[in-house]
Amino acid sequence: MTTIERASTARPQWRTRFGGREGLIGWTILAVLILIAILAPVLAPHSSEAIDSTRIFAKPDLSHPFGSDDLGRDVFSRVLYAYRASLSIAIGSVLLAMIVGVPIGVFAGYVGGWADLVLMRAVDLLLAFPALLLAISLIAILGPGNAVALLAIAIIYVPIIARVVRSSVLVVRGQPYVLGARTRGASHWAIVRGHVLPNSAGPVLVQASVLMAFAIVIEAALSFLGLGSQPPTPELGLMLAEGNNYLTTAPWVEIFPGLAIAVTVLAFNLIGDGLRRSFDPHGVTR
């Protein structure tokens, strides 16, 4: 047997692990945004809720880089604080949906048969509801607020994640290395943990990153309808909704929260692209 020389890849290991340039940029943006959310009280030049009647619709200047809103509050400080609610909802809702959806998908896909049939019909039932209608019904029952918005978005996501997990588990389950592991005595639990989960994680994580981006949009929509965060809590979707009224007179009230949402969505999408790449099992990095 010929021995192949140790393959020398030009790009460093850590970079490939984060999914190339796109992934790296995405993770960097997300890390910065999370830091902003955590350090908002330190970073914000002004209070997020202090009303200043002298600065109503004041234009952006050096001490108020994003200007002021209809109540004279500093938009920059409010955007910094808003990341707290927006990012927690985006990440939290997807994590919660994965905690519920991944086991459902793995069980349905791996066990198959009746378990698959029953679980997938239940998931279809959930999927048949229009997403916003589902969220609005839940909010009607539990009342508006960040926690309820998070829960509502998580419920919308459970069937999506369960389906993605199931389909990739189905593919992995039929692979000869899973059949071989069985004949070599590996338990079902060891196979699920060692082979099925790692090999079906790629599509799920890519989906999760896209869903996180979309969660910000859903949450903005809920807030826009007055069903998400309640004033005066700074939250990106809510700020977008409020700023909409003054788009012609004071565009900065609308534009900066909008840009903040766009940057977050971009970060999640870049991470998704990077994950797609790093989870290619054959390690083909284009």
């Binding site: 000869p176 290395y177 071989g180 592991a181 060692g194 090999n199 099992p281 054959h282």
Partner: peptide, 10 residues
Amino acid sequence: DPRSSLDPRW
């Protein structure tokens, strides 16, 4: 097919 009988991640 040894490609599919070995876990690509292991």
